[in-house]
Design a protein around this nucleic acid. Sequence first.
DNA 1: GTACTGACCAGAT
DNA 2: CATCTGGCCAGTA
Length: 104
Amino acid sequence: MEPDINQRIWQVVALIPPGKVATYGDVAAQAGLPGAARRVGRALKLLPTGTRIPWHRVVNAQGGISLPPGSSSQYTQRERLEAEGVVFKANGAVDLRRFRAFQP
DNA sequence: GTACTGACCAGAT
DNA sequence: CATCTGGCCAGTA
């Protein structure tokens, strides 16, 4: 595995402004790796607890959180986003049309 | 070496 | 709306 790739991914994630989100696919594309959404997921999984990278601003293509429901990290992600003003709809997903950082 | 899995996704059916 | 299909690619068994 190439560590440079993870660096690029993390750097892109760091660019997402507060109150906005980006999808895994968006982050991959911004990092110059179109179609490598899965790598983004892996890269985020490697982040140490307590990192300053705003990993919570990355959601899946449906605007939902791709972490096991009930896990502490899932709870943390939702809490942090709501604290930044991101609104979750009844189905547990955010409105990407309003909160997406890298609009097409 | 194959087979399955996963913080995924777009397009077709 | 729900499912399926094929693409992606590193880790694990």
